[in-house]
Design a protein around this nucleic acid. Structure first.
Lengths: 251, 251
DNA sequence: TGTATTATCTTGTCTATACAACCAGGCGCG
DNA sequence: CGCGCCTGGTTGTATAGACAAGATAATACA
């Protein structure tokens, strides 16, 4: 069978470089997977087998396998065995940051202008939020964010009064809604949708762009516990803003 | 000082629920951080101190601290101590997937049409890649991807011949360039830029959209080792495609 | 034959111990 | 005064041993 040759290849893949043993074990296992010797869903040798093959203590093997599991390379089932996870397929991620932080990080000046701060009634269509029935009150705010005086984001936000009853009383020159909401209702889950749209007349005017400039629209819905906290529509002028992301394969 | 009370609070925060000890230690530490008792950059008790305070073996403490470090809550320095990392501030991430996989995942049919597959010369402007001097050869491909017959992505790709010399010989009905390149040059790092743009005449025609429809443009550059492998410009019709992301605060 | 029990293999956790690697501050010596 | 050494504290790694918990297959029993 292939198991014997696979194991000897495994042992040789460890080498004797000056690196911690658990790391060499991890590398050896990743090598087997990348080389295709161990296929997705296939069972790999048990801890005690690896202990015998590699001459390493079980705790060290266990650490290697545990870390590879948390990194998505393996799947483990108590009482059953350890299996190769299906192709990680590189999750290439984009981070979506808080606008004020991001501007500050670039060393620029962030200012904002409050356009709207009001209570509205949920209507089940545009003015709606999961868990808030039509007719119930909602808080609504509109804020333009500027980077060195140039508008870069139009923030249109609905807030669940149950989760943030004092939302209307805050000073949004001093604190961004994002920061305030994170304080009163720590985020537990969220969702993003990013799309390309054309701005309407109002949006063109407030962002000071012309009618033919496409915009990035980020719709974000966040939850605290089981309750929806806020839904935001963040509109960015296409020529002044880009979403940037880096990714890296860290063994 | 507060250290005594903080420690006793730590011990009580452990509780004696029926959960693994290392998890209870992790929870207790996260609780201290969230409650503000332990501030960012502040040093937390050493492993041996925690051993004494909590009556747990050092290896268990070590596992808890190690995992919290890899999760971004703590920063550790050998010979110095363990410190609270600065506000994790939750990273809201968007994943950018392989188009073929994504369509298959939705249970739809993915097809593609090869428009261009050629060798060009790097010109230092539009046709350029990090590490490839102007005048050097580059491979160039253009492919339209369809979901159930509807065009959803125009893929315009430049490939480094050094990293994938056989790129022009592949059958891109059978395998996507992404998949092929991943095989011959496993990804080690990459970058994304997402922006909103208007399509030019050629793009309108191939994506079958009209001139006023904004598009999402994802520019992706990937590296294998220290060598640039490929740069792709992925153009999506704004009305037919959205980038979706979920995030979650997992302790 | 069908069912309950047992044995065994697997991963999951915990401990005690040991040594290595690294850092900071103190000490002594020139 | 300045330099190097040493020492104590800290994290990093490795091991052997033990028991718990889950899953599966073999076995015994009715």
């Amino acid at each position: 069978m292939t198991s014997q040759s696979a194991v000897s290849q495994l042992a040789s893949a460890m080498g004797q470089q000056p690196a911690p043993i658990y790391l060499r074990v991890k590398q050896a296992i990743i090598t087997q997977i990348r080389a295709g010797h161990w296929q997705p869903h296939q069972r790999i040798p048990s801890e005690s087998e690896l202990v015998n093959e590699l001459g390493v203590s079980r705790m060290t093997i266990n650490r290697a396998l545990r870390e590879l599991t948390s990194e998505g390379y393996l799947v483990r089932m108590q009482g059953v065995g350890t299996f190769v996870a299906e192709s990680k397929g590189y999750t290439a991620m984009l981070e979506v940051h808080n606008i004020a932080e991001e501007i500050a990080l670039r060393g620029h000046e962030h200012t904002s202008r409050l356009l709207t701060l009001e209570e509205v009634q949920a209507d089940g269509e545009r003015l709606t939020m999961p868990g808030v029935a039509p007719g119930q009150p909602l808080f609504h705010s509109q804020i333009v964010h500027y980077e060195d005086g140039i508008p870069v984001q139009l923030e249109d936000r609905l807030v669940n009064p149950v989760m943030a009853p004092d939302y209307l009383k805050q000073d949004y020159q001093a604190i961004t809604p994002y920061t305030y909401l994170m304080q009163v209702a720590p985020l537990s889950a969220g969702e993003h949708v990013v799309e390309a749209v054309m701005p309407d007349a109002f949006q063109q005017k407030t962002l000071m762009i012309d009618a033919r400039e496409p915009c990035l629209l980020v719709r974000r819905q966040t939850w605290s516990g089981n309750h929806a906290v806020t839904g935001a529509r963040l509109l960015y002028p296409g020529t002044r803003y880009k979403l940037l992301g880096k990714f890296r394969d860290h063994n």
